[in-house]
Every structure is written in structure tokens, then in C-alpha cells.
Simulated assay, not measured.
Amino acid sequence: MSTPEKSDLTTTAANPAAGRSDEDWRQELTPEEYHVLRQAGTERPYTGEYWDTHTAGVYNCRACGTELFTSKEKFDSHCGWPSFWAPLAEGRVRYIHDRTLGMDRIEVRCANCDSHLGHVFEGEGYGTPTDQRYCINSVSLKLVPAADDTSA
């Protein structure tokens, strides 16, 4: 998997989310959202809102609203978190080499506001087009159902 190097986000008119202070984030997010999105925490498996959701729609970053994933790339990995085989488009997420907790993983963050989303794994043998599993915390996402979806 080709992953970009960690990049510095700067505050621009196009990226106001990156300029929010820690105190701003604490006021805007619930304690659980803050822990996961801003402190790279992880929700417990099988507890999040979207781990078993099959509603058609777009998954946005809960912190800034950027469209990140769609239900078309979501699949049942049975790992306890929402899983996607690709982001909505190149440049929507960024990657960081994560060596915390004694593991060697690739962290996935929102490219707009630098919020922690989860991790991406590859080579696990899932029958997906990319052989990748974006294992994303439900609390990092906000599902916007498709207008014509009736499965909700």
C-alpha cells in the first residue's frame, strides 16, 4: 500500500477546521468523540452506531463534515467496527505510521481536520477489490442516508 508521509496541516480559508483550538474541540465534541477524534482513542468493538449498519449513504467526518466513505465501499468484516475497502476519493484521508501499543499499523485521519478515524490493514484475505480494510470508529463518522434509501 502506498501511503503518504505525515504532512503538516495549515489553517487556510479552505481548511478552517485545522485551526480550531483544543478548547474549541472540547466544546464541540462529546467526551467520547473528543477521546477518539482528537486523542486517537478507540471505541469498544461491537458498540458503535455503524458497525452493523447497511443503510445506503455517505459517511462524513463527525468533527468537520468532510465526506470520507460511502456505503458502496462498506463491507461486513465481522471485526466490530465499520469496515470499508476504500475511501470515497483520493485525498479525503491521510495516513500516519503508527507504532503505539507495540503494534506496527497505519493510522487513518481526516485530511481536512486531522481527526483520528481508525486504521487501515491489508492482506487479510477479504474478498474486496483492494484487499484493504479501513477499520473506522463509528464515533468518528456521521452517516448521511441516501435520499432514496428505504432500508433504514
Rank of each mutant, 00 (worst) to 15 (best):
M1S: 14
M1P: 08
S2D: 14
T3F: 04
P4T: 05
E5H: 10
S7L: 03
S7H: 03
S7R: 11
D8N: 10
L9R: 15
T11L: 04
T12V: 12
T12R: 06
A14T: 11
N15Y: 10
N15T: 10
P16S: 08
G19V: 06
R26H: 12
P31T: 09
P31Q: 07
P31A: 07
E33W: 07
Y34G: 14
V36I: 11
L37P: 03
E43H: 05
P45Q: 10
G48F: 04
E49P: 02
W51N: 09
W51D: 11
T53K: 12
T53F: 00
C61L: 06
L68M: 00
L68C: 02
F69V: 02
F69S: 07
S71A: 12
S71W: 04
K72I: 00
E73A: 15
S77L: 00
H78R: 08
W81S: 02
S83P: 02
F84S: 04
L88V: 09
G91A: 04
G91L: 08
R92S: 08
R94M: 14
I96Y: 11
I96L: 13
H97I: 10
R99M: 12
R99Q: 15
T100D: 15
G102L: 05
D104Y: 04
I106C: 05
I106Q: 15
V108C: 09
R109M: 10
C110I: 14
A111T: 06
H116W: 08
L117Q: 11
G118P: 05
G118F: 10
G118W: 05
G123S: 13
E124R: 06
G127A: 12
T128S: 07
T130I: 08
Q132C: 12
C135T: 00
I136G: 05
I136S: 08
V139I: 10
V139S: 01
L141H: 07
V144H: 06
A146W: 06
A147C: 11
A147K: 10
D148E: 13
T150K: 13
T150Q: 09
